[in-house]
Design a protein around this nucleic acid. Structure first.
Length: 334
DNA sequence: AAAGCGTGGGC
DNA sequence: TGCCCAAGCTT
């Protein structure tokens, strides 16, 4: 992992850049290491310091985050960078309390930064640690209700020696050996004290309360290309689903879509294929309508973005799926 | 305090 | 193939 420094360096007092640890930890919230890696490298190459990031344009940061999901993280990333510069002299706070005051930094991330970047004896409790503790102590209370007990167990184990190494090690243990499906108990360094290992309950822990089924919503997206090659796009409002991201104008997304109008009058063509996408709490079937806009078109929403300025990679994935289908249409009809 | 909030990979 | 899961935070 490119944000990590070796235990050997850490032992000699060489700690990682707090900016890098903060960046990686925010990206890693509910996101796999494999997905984060390239984003981390692009962000730190483009904005090498927190001051560079604080000076960035909102749209540039949102565009660079596109595809990683949970876009409130990107909005808070910018807020946080600016808070560090304006309220903390450009240095990240080195205490749990100070870190918790930053936007997008909750109990886990604050403890991760404090322990990994500053070697403070704070306790990280992420999904890995929850699983390891539930098994180590054979706790059958379902999550999220078990969280306080799991946190207390984890805190009791946190050492004062090399807390940063320990935090990473216990998460690595959960990510590799004490894995959700096929835990490798035979090679686990904690196999002797582990209650679930002894009782044979490891694979069924931690218990979780069942999830609600996802409803299916539908909607329409309007993808218009002007004769000069510009695309009609809009910036979504700064809160809610895909907040702050670039997207295509369209209807609401709902189980029953209310009446709505296209952004301008034209001979809109409905594509034969829909864009299918699943969000955290619903499935979406997006119907795509395409049109060529004459020069001088005045849309009721959004604005035309030049073909040179528009990077499809700035779009969140659902909008990118819609674009790919529309582009097939425009190319195929040429 | 329960719900909202993305995405891709693995099985 | 659909479901589960991933180094959670905010309101």
């Amino acid at each position: 992992m490119p944000w990590r420094t070796s235990p050997a360096d850490r032992a000699r007092g060489i700690l990682p850049d707090p900016y890098h640890i903060w960046m990686s930890e925010v990206m890693l919230q509910q996101t796999t290491v494999a997905a984060v890696r390239d984003y981390f490298l692009r962000f730190t190459a483009r904005w090498p310091t927190v001051a560079d990031l604080a000076a960035a344009e909102d749209g540039d940061v949102m565009g660079e985050w596109a595809g990683l999901g949970y876009y409130a993280r990107a909005r808070n990333l910018l807020k946080c960078a600016r808070a560090v510069v304006t309220d903390h002299g450009g240095q990240f706070p080195d205490t749990l309390e100070g870190l918790l005051g930053l936007p997008g930094v909750g109990p886990y991330t604050a403890a991760a930064i404090a322990s990994i970047a500053f070697d403070r004896a704070e306790t990280v409790v992420d999904g890995n640690v929850e699983r390891v503790m539930a098994r180590l102590y054979d706790i059958h209370t379902p999550l999220p209700g078990a969280k306080p007990e799991l946190t207390a167990r984890a805190a009791r184990l946190t050492p004062t020696q090399r807390p940063g190494d320990y935090a990473q090690a216990v998460m690595d243990l959960g990510a590799t050996i004490c894995s959700p499906r096929n835990p490798a108990c035979g090679i686990c360094p904690w196999q002797t004290p582990c209650a679930a290992r002894r009782l044979g309950t490891a694979t069924e822990l931690p218990k979780k309360t069942p999830k609600k089924p996802k409803p299916t919503r539908t909607g329409i997206a309007y993808i218009a290309r002007r004769s000069d090659g510009d695309w009609l796009l809009e910036r979504r409002p700064d809160r809610g689903l895909l907040g702050g991201m670039l997207g295509w104008p369209g209807s609401e997304w709902a189980e029953q879509v209310p009446p709505h109008a296209a952004p301008f009058d034209a001979d809109w063509v409905t594509l034969p294929a829909q864009a299918l996408h699943t969000f955290t709490h619903f499935h979406l079937r997006l119907t795509i309508q395409v049109a060529v806009a004459p020069q001088g078109t005045n849309p009721t929403t959004g604005s035309f973005l030049s073909g040179d300025m528009f990077r499809p990679s700035d779009l969140p994935t659902v909008m990118r799926k819609a674009f790919d289908l529309a582009q097939d249409h425009f190319v195929g009809s040429r």
